[in-house]
Computed example of a mutant assay.
Amino acid sequence: MIEALLEGISMGLLLSAMIGPVFFTLIQSSLEKGFRYAAMVAIGILVSDSLYVVLTYFGVRFLAEATYFESLLGYVGGVILIGFGISYLVKKQAVRPKNEIGEESKGKKRGAFIKGFSINGINPFVLLFWISIASLVHLKESFDSMDVWAYYVGILSTVFSIDLTKAYIAKKLAQFVTPVFMFWLNKIVGIAMIGFGIRLVWFAMG
Rank of each mutant, 00 (worst) to 15 (best):
I2Y: 08
I2N: 14
E3F: 09
A4I: 06
L5Y: 06
E7L: 07
E7R: 10
E7I: 03
I9Q: 10
L15C: 02
M18V: 13
I19T: 14
G20F: 10
V22S: 10
T25F: 15
L26K: 15
L26Q: 15
L26I: 12
S29W: 09
L31F: 04
K33G: 01
G34I: 03
V41S: 14
I45R: 05
S48E: 03
D49F: 10
D49I: 09
Y52V: 11
L55E: 03
Y57R: 15
Y57G: 03
F58T: 15
G59D: 00
G59S: 13
V60C: 02
F62K: 13
E65Y: 04
F69A: 05
S71Q: 11
Y75R: 07
V76Y: 05
V76R: 08
V76M: 06
V76S: 09
V79N: 01
I80P: 01
L81C: 00
I82H: 08
I86L: 09
Y88F: 13
K91A: 12
V95Q: 03
R96Y: 12
P97M: 01
P97T: 08
N99C: 00
N99V: 00
N99S: 04
E100H: 01
I101L: 07
E104K: 03
K106T: 14
K106H: 09
K108G: 13
K109W: 09
R110H: 04
A112Y: 09
A112E: 10
K115Q: 13
K115G: 05
F117C: 08
F117H: 04
S118R: 04
I119N: 12
N120Q: 09
N120D: 09
N120I: 11
N120R: 12
I122D: 01
P124Y: 07
P124T: 03
F125R: 14
V126G: 08
S132C: 02
L139T: 12
S142A: 08
F143N: 02
D147W: 14
A150E: 01
Y151E: 00
Y152T: 04
V153P: 06
G154K: 14
L156T: 13
S157Q: 07
F160K: 09
I162E: 00
D163V: 12
L164R: 02
L164Y: 02
A167D: 06
Y168N: 14
A170L: 05
K172S: 06
Q175F: 06
V177S: 04
P179Y: 02
V180I: 11
F181N: 06
M182K: 15
W184H: 10
L185V: 03
N186T: 03
K187E: 00
K187R: 13
I188F: 07
G190K: 06
A192P: 07
M193D: 01
G195R: 13
F196E: 00
G197D: 02
F203I: 10
F203L: 14
F203H: 06
M205C: 07
G206C: 00
G206T: 08
